[in-house]
Design a protein around this nucleic acid. Structure first.
Length: 563
RNA sequence: UGGGGCGUAGCCAAGCGGCAAGGCAGGGGACUUUGGCUCCUCGAUUCGUAGGUUCGAAUCCUACCGCCCCAGCCA
């Protein structure tokens, strides 16, 4: 067949197949999707999957994607969330253009459609209490019973509904219900509540309304108003699809959108539940919604994950209908892939150990040329000062090295990256027997890191000149939950929060250029990992968050040996 | 015991009656001035189970098993 427009990067999944078929068969003139967040919390990586799906499809099929705030419940929704959600979608790299909407934009139309339903004898005002409605609804295995108010006349219902809107009744005194089928196996059909009284101030409409439509009565109709062709949502709404269709069929809506469901994202070592995330924030388990350990887009961003990595991840995991839990390693792989290509390399010593080069002239300083990114020659080089007294990583020295330890040890020669080979001659200890300094010699012939005789040290270390290094705070992050499945096996979810998920290092040292690096930029500390400049940084005291460590086969070997 | 879904490698996921893609994780190796990157290489005689249809089944049929969702005036 024609392979010209079939690039290997082209995504395919059951939803894209449906869209392509609908376009091909002229079921739709163009594709219109929407991302419909409720502004009652921050967006997380699970939402990113949906955003990439909806905006991705519209882009791939030359359609459009709307951003619509599903703001039908003023008691939970806040402007703060609306603003944060917009910022997050933009950061992820998507643009809704002119198509920013709110369900609240349609309150008047929705109200009119409710009145229409009443006129058709398909909706009624029910005076049953919430408790009674639940009892009348029946159970999963037993049919429900009809409310005694179900047979009110259209006139009476209209009068009552009008007065509900006018504010004559207190919260909870009555609701408007669609009249469908109290015996349906699908509980959503047992006369669903479509309007409830809520004397609450809405972030956008203020106090203009005291009756608000339910999700079921608002979502499909809003889709119809906007001309959405493919309304994509998660699996738990499958049972609602018949109801979604029922409203589309029974109301004079301007278009007939269709709903399709896919499996929401689950990730190991974290939790993607707005309720739980809210509690983590409110109860101080984390620094806030943007804590680098949070799976929120705000947290991920502060952590230093690039938006491109999130998008790559979304493409990698696919879209299907089977419940699944993706291993967080897949996300990390996508993020490392982007960072490896783009992050500038820098030197930083997290846990410093002093090295004195005994045969290096006291007071002398050399500017060594160091490559900024071996994956990207255009990133160029920089000068890093070298002198007699240096800092190296404490982990890079062992007085009694085991077999597979390649780094510095007494009598051993290693390379200091882009500088010289050095050999350790003497280990200086304090009164406790702790190593506090290494006395070494360097080989002047190895300047730049290469030996004329072509000898190859087994290890290359990063380093910093003692006189030139600048102090920094470094915050090491691990998964928020040590368990891959937080709260599983009956444990309390919050007991699974790993107290060591954040470790703050206050004695770290970094290259001088890092003090001037912009907040939010992610760099690679050579041999250690990727680190992002935290907003807590000040001009004199930079703060770095560890985005991700580098893959570390030495650490793995060491762990295997221990195990 | 109602209704709606889902079961392909440790994880994600293609596959749509013609002889099991790809990615992640893991093992082995090459390369290496990051124990990084990159590159090779290893994995399902088998697709929840059992029958059946067929020359041929992960794909069709039947039954069974397992898991998820639904009883908000949340979305």
């Amino acid at each position: 067949m024609d392979t010209q427009n079939t690039s290997p990067s082209e995504k395919s999944d059951f939803i894209r197949d449906i869209v392509a078929a609908d376009l091909r068969d002229n079921h739709v003139a163009g594709v219109v999707t929407r991302f419909p967040p409720e502004p009652n919390g921050y967006l997380h990586i699970g939402h990113a999957k949906s955003i990439c799906l909806n905006f991705g499809i519209s882009a791939e099929f030359s359609g459009r994607c709307h951003l619509r705030f599903d703001d039908t419940n003023p008691v939970k929704e806040e402007q703060e969330y609306i603003d944060a959600i917009k910022a997050d979608v933009q950061w992820l790299g998507f643009d809704w253009g002119e198509h920013l909407y709110h369900t609240s934009d349609y309150f008047e139309q929705l109200y009119e459609w409710a009145v229409y339903l009443i006129g058709e004898g398909k909706a009624y005002v029910d005076d049953l209490t919430a408790e009674e409605i639940r009892e009348y609804r029946g159970t999963l295995t037993e049919p429900g019973r009809e409310s005694p108010y179900r047979t009110r006349s259209a006139e009476e219902n209209l009068d009552l509904f009008t007065r509900m809107r006018a504010g004559e009744f207190p919260d909870g005194s009555c609701v408007l219900r669609a009249k469908i089928d109290m015996a349906s196996g699908n509980i959503n059909f047992r006369d669903p509540v479509i309007y409830r009284i809520l004397h609450a101030t809405h972030p956008r409409t203020g106090d203009a309304w005291c009756v608000y439509p339910s999700y079921d009565f608002a979502h499909g109709q809003s889709d119809a108003i906007e001309g959405i062709t493919h309304s994509i949502c998660t699996l738990e709404f499958q049972d609602h699809r018949p109801l979604y269709d029922w409203f589309i069929e029974n109301l004079p809506v301007p278009s007939a959108p269709h709903q399709y469901e896919f499996a929401r994202l689950n990730l190991t070592h974290t939790v993607l539940s707005k309720r739980v995330l809210l509690k983590l924030v409110k109860e101080g388990f984390v620094r806030g919604w943007d804590d680098p350990r949070m799976p929120t887009l705000a947290g991920i961003r502060r952590r230093g994950f690039p938006a491109e990595g999130i998008r790559d991840f979304a493409g990698m995991i696919g879209v299907a209908r089977a419940d699944s839990v993706v291993e967080v390693e897949m996300l990390e792989h996508a993020v490392r892939g982007v960072l490896n290509r783009t992050a500038l390399r820098r030197f930083a010593v997290l846990d410093p150990l002093k090295v004195v080069i005994e045969n290096y002239p006291d007071g002398q300083t050399e500017e060594m040329d160091v490559v900024n990114n071996p994956e990207d020659p255009s990133a160029g080089t920089r000068k890093v000062p070298f002198s007699r007294e240096l800092w190296i990583e404490r982990d890079d020295f062992m007085e009694e090295p085991p077999k597979k330890f390649f780094r510095l040890a007494p009598g051993r020669e290693v390379r200091l990256r882009s500088a010289y080979f050095i050999t350790c001659n003497e280990v200086v200890k304090d009164e406790n027997g702790d190593v506090i300094e290494l006395r070494c010699t360097y080989d002047p012939a190895t300047r730049g890191g290469a030996a004329p005789d072509d000898r190859k040290p087994k290890a290359t270390l990063h380093w910093l000149s003692a006189d030139h290094a600048v102090p920094a705070e470094v915050r090491l992050y691990n998964h928020l939950f040590a368990s891959p499945f937080p709260g599983s096996d009956g444990r309390d979810l919050f007991d699974d929060v790993d107290p060591e998920s954040e470790t703050v290092l206050r004695d770290s040292l970094v290259e001088k250029v890092l003090a001037d690096t912009a907040i939010g930029e992610t760099v690679q500390f050579e041999r250690l990992g990727y680190f992002c400049v935290d907003p807590d940084s000040t001009g004199t005291a930079p703060v770095f968050n560890r985005t991700l460590s580098l893959k570390d086969s030495w650490a793995r070997k060491r762990a295997q040996a221990t195990a």
